[in-house]
Amino acid sequence: MKQATAADLRTLAQDHPVFAVKEIVDKHIESKGAAIPILQEIQNVFGYISPELLRRAGEFSGIPVNELYSIVTFYAQFRMEPTGEHLIQVCHGTACHLAGAERITESIQFETKAGPGKTSDDGMFTMEKVACLGCCSLAPVLTIDEETYGKLSPEKVRKIIKDVRRKNPEHSASKGDNESA
């Protein structure tokens, strides 16, 4: 039996979210300790885990929903709300802290209007603080949608955010757009 890839599941999830959850559960349920891999894949496919998805996962897997819920709340990775279009993860590991992660966070907030753990009003950016991204020699570090940027300064942050915005012209921002590149 061929296993559905994450891309297949994402397509399926658009029209038939319940079927997608069923597929995900079936894919993992045979292995021991399946609960976390199931939840990870649901998050990967849907972007977050809504109460409805959690209920379905419980129904198909036979794992009590309150058990699933306790897992989701225990692990920092799980999200119960959707993120904005772009997920910014700012490293607050030790090396990045020493190199001024706080300042980077502030400048991201300034540029995107998304505070730590929050999504900007235009739905474009969500900012999360995370522990070490494993590139400590390049501190301070952040990732946007899994792309890593190092040796940051507030200026560099501004440029990065501007580049991301430029790639999404329909969401053109109010600030900074009139500055010439």
């Binding site: 300790g33 399946a34 609960a35 976390i36 306790s70 897992i71 692990y75 920092a76 990775q77």
Partner: peptide, 20 residues
């Protein structure tokens, strides 16, 4: 899944078992 305590060996094993 993003929990520092899971680096501790007994917690790690619980996590593989699919628990908190």
């Amino acid at each position: 899944a993003g929990a520092f305590v899971c680096g501790e060996e007994t917690a790690l094993l619980m996590s593989i078992e699919g628990k908190r």
